[in-house]
Design a protein around this nucleic acid. Sequence first.
DNA 1: CACCTAAATTGGTTATACCAATTTTGCTAA
DNA 2: TTAGCAAAATTGGTATAACCAATTTAGGTG
Lengths: 248, 248
Amino acid sequence: MEKNDNSKKTYEAIIDSIKTYIMNGKIKAGQKLPPERELAKKFNVSRTSIREALRTLEILGAIKSVQGSGNYITGDFEKSLIESMSMMFLLQQIDSLEFYQFREALELKAAMLAVRNIDDEKIRKLEEILAEMARSEDEATRSALDKQLHETIAAASKNSMIIQILNILSEVISQDIKQRRSEILSDPRNINRLQKIHEEMVFSLKQRDAQATYAAFTKHFDIIAEYIRTNENNQINNQINNLYNENS
Amino acid sequence: MEKNDNSKKTYEAIIDSIKTYIMNGKIKAGQKLPPERELAKKFNVSRTSIREALRTLEILGAIKSVQGSGNYITGDFEKSLIESMSMMFLLQQIDSLEFYQFREALELKAAMLAVRNIDDEKIRKLEEILAEMARSEDEATRSALDKQLHETIAAASKNSMIIQILNILSEVISQDIKQRRSEILSDPRNINRLQKIHEEMVFSLKQRDAQATYAAFTKHFDIIAEYIRTNENNQINNQINNLYNENS
DNA sequence: CACCTAAATTGGTTATACCAATTTTGCTAA
DNA sequence: TTAGCAAAATTGGTATAACCAATTTAGGTG
């Protein structure tokens, strides 16, 4: 059997074909692909090659295979990005500080967009969270509320891409974030400091004051950065390693 | 043959195993994995499953398969992220404005980091680019210099993750960026405006003045945003579609 | 020692068979 | 007729075995 392409491996050619298939709108999200055996016939290759192509499409988040049912077009790319970024850390030894700076970039932009786009309901929600944080006793509650606060602000940006990537980043370093959050939030000296800054952040958003919002968020980041710098050797990779070592 | 895991498919389990293999440092970047037939024996599964796992690792950028030679650990995740993000656009209809806001987030952070980290040599380079831009006649040259300017600033941030992601973003929307850059840079009213802002950007970096840098970059973004808003219907997807339709 | 060729190694692909989950079909009973 | 259930068909998941194609290795030759 002749190959579809001189240079490309068969499964790569198949991927492109199926991609084009999807992009041209012949198949829309949610729809089912033809059965593997049929695809094999149609593309005139073995089912194995079809499956290798489908595997990569699956890892890219383009499709989802369901045994006994079929291969469905999806749009779930978060998983794929999470995988990629995780691997990126694993092999490139990107340190925590760099990672958090990346995250800060998005959080800050989200905040600046929120200044323009936030509505009164979200403001109320933020104020509620703040109030709960103030009267929370245990570190676990504070940690959960802290997470909620940041997510609410991100959502107020109304930029779905930034929201999605922030979610992904949280996933990638959830272990790391959790640990650090609890570290930082369990230090009694920080509790008040952070509470104040959180209040500043929300207040400046309420006032739709861009400059104050920028200042408040920057201050917030500085506290985090301070913590990370003191544990410079604590590479994020260690955390991620633990994630995977479970199933070795 | 019993499956390695109750819930996971075999090839997924294999992926995890090989990942762990990599993470534990048993295999470092550049090294060769054991042959597929050997891996199959070691993991007690078929070569088929091994290969499906290797395909996904390849698409993730973790390995590279070379026929006749072997599977090598690499660290080339850009390709994978580009793929993921491209697909993200294709199926999710993220519009240009959102995308550029995402980009701005990283550019701004890069600039703010550059304020702290930039050295005199990079400053000189930026000034040279500015000078060239001032005396450039054609739009193509200005466009190339503009790109160079932004890349140099990004590099000055010294945050490899931000630099990488910015590169990836450029790749993903290179068509779009090129088109808009030339649109914006070909309008005679903008040439002077942009030249001034670029000078502000570089000058504020030279002064290591964070506030001024922030102001300059924000002003720069506003010009871009202004342009994009007036062409709101111009979805980025169109550009990317064209990228792929070639091989249909 | 350098070079070339043949053999061995290793990834790429195909074909077939069977397992496992889901879906469909069609019968049975209420 | 219809609701429910069980068998059959469909469809993805895995395993073997065989062969192709590129690379690497080994061995021999000049």
